[in-house]
Amino acid sequence: MIWNLIKYSLDSVTWDFRTGLLHNIFPVSELKEPSGKCKITLIAFAPISANGKIRSRALVYGLLLQNPNQTGKPLELMLPISDSGKSLVKVNGQILKIWQKVDYLEGPAASFKTEVPANGSVEIEILN
């Protein structure tokens, strides 16, 4: 993630964070940037039918980035894209992109840019 021109790897930042199960089902993590310049909530799960018999070959990520600053900030996200099949990205409920098969070993990771408004947030949903 590049937030306000600074690059962060969310899988290895040492920010304070909390984890739990949303509605006792969905693994959820909340990360707080130490100086309070952004807060990120991440949900990741593999869909499964209620009776457990259908297990989709899919992974869903939900990311909520809150910007507590008084000004809008640029955001660039490098996304975890699967190495086969389609990936669909929605930003604030609108389909932003559909990637066809991405070979992440050869090409750059799929990414997109947006602007997060002052005291606002951006919701990103990714279906792999």
Partner: peptide
């Protein structure tokens, strides 16, 4: 028990 929605916390 769950004292909050986020029962595992890192930091403080």
């Amino acid at each position: 028990t769950k004292t909050s929605e986020m029962p595992v916390q890192y930091g403080d």
